[in-house]
Design a protein around this nucleic acid. Structure first.
Lengths: 351, 351
DNA sequence: AGGTACTGTGGGAGCGCTCCCACGAGTGAT
DNA sequence: ATCACTCGTGGGAGCGCTCCCACAGTACCT
């Protein structure tokens, strides 16, 4: 190829030193140009840039990492087996947002699965070696030790879906409370009178917030909350079937169901059908997540959509700030470390 | 936490030097133990290992990379947008194989998407910086410049699906020729007499091989190949529809179709239905890939399965060998650098 | 005129590791 | 006893960068 010629005499990749010699300046000056420092005169900068181009210089990442004590890489840690990762559009969307926000950065994104115990041990090792500057954590369960490990290692991290109202890690979440409210308000506006709620796993903070939203929407509309209409689920289809069966037994007169997830709604739908209830004529059904399953359900499911791609972008924003801010944690502002994004109710024919 | 105490006095992470001091040995000896060199006595090794455990020592990857000129990382490069990556089970399976084979290694896997031009430029930069020891390339088109770039940078690489019979890069592929043969032989055995073939994109080597297999299976069964029964497709559903329409117009008497991919078969199926042909009574249909769509088609599609997970494993095998072998390319054995894995015909009701 | 301040620059020190040479001690052949 | 090895070990040199101190030059005050 044409652009091959002008390499260092050693044959290998050119170094800072060689660029400096070529440009007739010192090593420090080249470093400054490479790193975009403003303390370089225009003429010098031009000379260095020319030398860089001629030699095809690319900084040695390892040397930089060693000297500067940073890696210019962040990890997206998925504490799930690969299978789930690929099955759920959630991750794909999030990755899109993350990638987009990262694209005009020097940062490299690593994707790390930590589904099995073995993978988890590897990950712990990996983090202990500080091979990344920061970590993005998605879909973390309440009892996961990972966040504490990160805190202990003092690795900047952002979690999607805080574990509680007092989450120590920076976090990005969608407005579970508001999303639930909008779903219930929608059902009320459609004239529904007995609205049941199948919750998500209540050890997930977001699921609790949805219950709060459900209650408050009813209360503010002047209704009293009928505790018999709230049944715990666990985000799964089987859980949805079980909960729906229980609800139907207790309150056969119910005319609407707000489910904690689309999958749960699918389970509920099945039981309703088997009980001879028509959707939406007899019972209106609303899900949560607006996943692919919502669009393909029969009838298409009204659902609360979370801005997942935007959540990905926000997570990167937060993380980069945390990394840049690397001061003692205590002195940091606590505002802006917990981002909550608005949800949107997508109305389809199930309600 | 309990295990916090015994850190280096400096407060940061312990270094090799500190471990050496603690174990009462020299720096070199610790390095040897860490890297599993056999040239260390049992007693010394034990002492070093104790010191490592006490201090919680973890090697500094950047320093190691700088000194040893390797990164202990390899990249899986996907020259597609994220969307396709997630849509196709192909990638998920491959990743599973790759991950499994890598799990008892120190190697770290990076997933890099290079779908857009921007991403490609980033990738080129990334490779030029030698941030990985090797590259796994999946789903590469014939005119892709990436393989050449890799060759030029002298980065070990393995490609899944060689670009030609004389692929320069090490490669892993499934037996496209044999897979096609088995599909056609199956149709012949079922008594089909006019077997059409909708090809894949013919600039993809594997697609050509499938055509070869199709021809040879017919010839060896004593049939002559009717060129009117071969119609180019492009792996897409739309291409399948177009090709099927053309075939039906030319040879209304055909009684079987071997499609270049499951998606193509789906397109063909649609046209056949609209033309009032029953599957499999009037026309038998066989696809390729055994993807999810094959199982869910109506009727379920007979298809040729590729051992994708195993291909992932083989790719890692090959790549690790290439990396370890780092001698001048010319002196390398050419055998074993092109692995071909057997396919399997999965019979369902469409044939 | 001397002081003070800032700007742009060069280059030493050092990041934590691997590589390799040197060296003492042990072993066996001569 | 001497030589020739081998084995296990210590530690110097050096990987290519960033950080920071020192210094020359210029500009602007007093």
């Amino acid at each position: 190829m044409a652009s091959h010629g002008a390499r260092g005499r050693s044959g290998g990749r050119p170094t800072l030193e060689e660029v400096a010699a070529r440009a007739g300046v010192g090593r420090g000056t080249v470093s400054r140009v490479i790193n975009g420092s403003p303390r370089v005169s225009g003429a010098t900068r031009a000379a260095v840039e020319a030398a860089v181009a001629e030699l095809g210089y690319v900084p040695n990442t390892a040397a930089r990492a060693l000297a500067a004590n940073r890696t210019d890489a962040i990890a997206l840690v998925v504490p799930e087996p690969e299978t789930r990762f690929f099955a759920e559009p959630y991750f794909s969307d999030m990755l899109k947002g993350v990638g987009a926000e990262l694209s005009d950065t020097e940062m490299q994104l690593l994707l790390i699965f930590a589904g099995s115990d073995k993978e988890r041990r590897r990950l712990a090792q990996y983090l202990a070696a500080h091979r990344v500057d920061g970590v993005l954590l998605v879909s973390v369960h309440a009892d996961d030790p990972l966040p504490d490990l990160l805190a202990q290692l003092e690795i900047p991290a952002v979690i999607s879906g805080p574990r509680s109202a007092t989450e120590a890690l920076a976090s990005v979440d969608s407005d579970n409370y508001g999303g639930a409210r909008s779903a219930v308000e929608h059902l009320l506006a459609r004239g529904r009178r007995e609205i049941a709620h199948i919750t998500g796993r209540l050890d997930v903070y977001g699921a609790q917030r949805r219950v709060d939203g459900y209650r408050d929407a009813l209360t503010e509309a002047g209704r009293t909350v009928d505790e018999q209409l709230v049944e715990p689920g666990d985000f799964t289809e089987e859980g949805g079937r079980r909960a729906m069966t229980a609800l139907l037994a207790r309150r056969p007169s119910l005319d609407a169901v707000f489910a904690g997830s689309d999958v749960t709604a699918a389970g509920a739908r099945q039981v309703l059908r088997e009980a001879g209830r028509r959707i939406p004529e007899d019972v209106a059904l609303v899900g949560y997540d607006d996943s692919a399953i919502a669009r393909h359900m029969d009838p298409p499911l009204t659902s609360v959509r979370q801005p997942i791609e935007e959540m990905g972008r926000s997570m990167i924003d937060l993380l980069l700030t945390e990394i840049a801010d690397r001061r003692p944690a205590a002195s940091r502002e606590l505002e802006r470390r917990h981002v909550v994004l608005a949800t949107e109710l997508v109305e389809r024919t199930s309600s």
